[in-house]
Simulated scan of single mutants.
Amino acid sequence: MIIKDLFINFCIISTFLFFGNALFRSVRSNPRISPFVFKMLTGVFLGVFGIVQMQFTFKLDNGTLLDLRQIPIIVATVLSGGMAGIITTILISIARLWFSASITGVSFLGIANACITFVIAYFVFRTKPSFRYKWFMTALLSTLNSLLIFLLWTGFSKRTTLILFIVVLFSSFIFTYLLIERLRRYNKIYDAMSKEVQFDFLTGLYNYRGFTYKYNQLSQQKKITFSLLLLDIDYFKVINDQYGHSAGDAVLAQFAEVLCSSVRSFDYCFRKGGEEFAIILEHVEEHAEAIRWAETIRQNIQEHKFVIPDGRTVSMTVSLGIGFYPLYADDELLEKTDRALYEAKKGGRNQFCIAH
């Protein structure tokens, strides 16, 4: 029976951690969700995880019911910090009282166990050793803490009961650690591959592939309005011809920094190729607002002194085309904005034109 219960709990742990990892990867990548909100969501999610686990208990041979509520508390604290751990602990503690047939000393021992588990995880993971060492130390101390509370509750138990208690709890910690390590490695590989596929190695901006993906994603969501800016560095070929390609690379990297500092943190900057760039300004559909952003970018580029490898500085200007979604849709928006960029270059450069 213990083997069956252990298998069920391991399935619950795997399900919550796997789907939770996938869910929170997408949430974390959304620039509109602040770290504070992300930590709160993590705490709530793992609190629900703990409440579910409390419904699938192990029945030991002396009739004691054991659950694995410590695991989501540790996971929340380790992966998202103290705030998430506190929220998870509070939700589990409330549920412990809610599901109790009557509030007794045992109920408060269960809450004490949850709170002490949080304190252990919080302080152990503030130390410097490796993740593996800190996890095993947390698992060991949490197991000893739960064992102590178990003994305070039941008094002296049979040796087999104590051994079973320790084996179930500690093996669950080990299983969770192995699963989290696999997810951490997967996330690291996934992030590296995503960065290589969608980001430009020189500037750190989204590349053409990233632009295509993000543009298609936004243009298919009819409720999201945005302005599209297409930019060309004026006479960039002169930099390469006069100072060399290393100077050109240095200018491109600094140009990207100026672009990013000229827009909001949740806007998107892209290097489409060569000296061609693009910016997507979300929720900007008014001509006047888009013009203000374009003029800010143009002025910042014009006023910036770009440093090349030999220490000299050069000045640059930029031409821009401005288009609006959903005034124009999909391919039409790209075509008209590109035409506006051409008009800006043809009209003397260092200016912007609006798609029409």
Rank of each mutant, 00 (worst) to 15 (best):
F165V: 03
I163M: 12
F118A: 09
W153S: 08
S146R: 00
W153Y: 13
F170D: 04
I116C: 05
I174K: 03
R185G: 13
A112H: 00
R185Q: 15
P129S: 15
L162I: 15
T127C: 15
T117H: 00
Y122A: 13
T143M: 10
K158N: 13
L169G: 00
A114Y: 02
L148Q: 02
A139W: 02
Y133P: 00
L152M: 13
L144W: 06
L162F: 08
P129M: 12
S130W: 09
I120Y: 06
N113C: 05
F136M: 14
T154P: 00
L162R: 05
Y133T: 15
I166S: 04
L178P: 02
L147E: 09
L148H: 03
F131D: 08
G110L: 08
L140A: 14
L152S: 06
K134A: 06
L179Y: 14
F125C: 10
F175P: 07
C115E: 05
V167T: 12
L152D: 03
L169K: 05
M137L: 15
W135F: 14
R182H: 13
Y133N: 12
M137S: 10
L148S: 13
N113D: 10
F125S: 09
L178M: 15
P129D: 13
A139P: 02
I174F: 12
C115G: 15
F156A: 12
T160P: 04
M137P: 00
K134Q: 13
R126P: 11
S172M: 07
L178W: 11
N145M: 10
I116M: 09
A139D: 01
Y122P: 06
T176H: 02
C115N: 05
F156G: 05
T161Q: 04
V168H: 07
R159H: 10
G155D: 11
A139L: 05
I120G: 07
R126W: 12
A121G: 03
G110P: 00
N113M: 07
L140R: 02
S146L: 03
F165P: 01
L179R: 05
F125A: 08
R184A: 03
C115D: 01
L179H: 11
R132V: 12
L141R: 08
V167R: 01
R159S: 13
Y177K: 01
T127H: 11
K134Y: 07
S142K: 02
A112G: 15
S130N: 11
F125D: 09
L152K: 01
T161W: 04
V168M: 05
F123H: 15
F131K: 10
L148P: 04
F165L: 08
T143A: 04
S157A: 13
I180G: 00
S146M: 03
S130H: 08
L152G: 08
S172I: 03
K128L: 15
I111C: 09
I111Y: 01
T160M: 14
F165I: 03
L162T: 09
R132Y: 10
V124R: 07
F156T: 12
K158R: 14
I180Q: 07
F131C: 06
R159P: 02
Y133W: 15
W135R: 01
S142Q: 02
I166M: 11
L144N: 03
F118E: 05
I120T: 08
R184F: 03
R184T: 04
F175D: 08
V167A: 11
R182N: 14
L183C: 03
V167H: 01
F156H: 10
I116E: 02
L141K: 07
E181A: 09
A139R: 02
S142I: 01
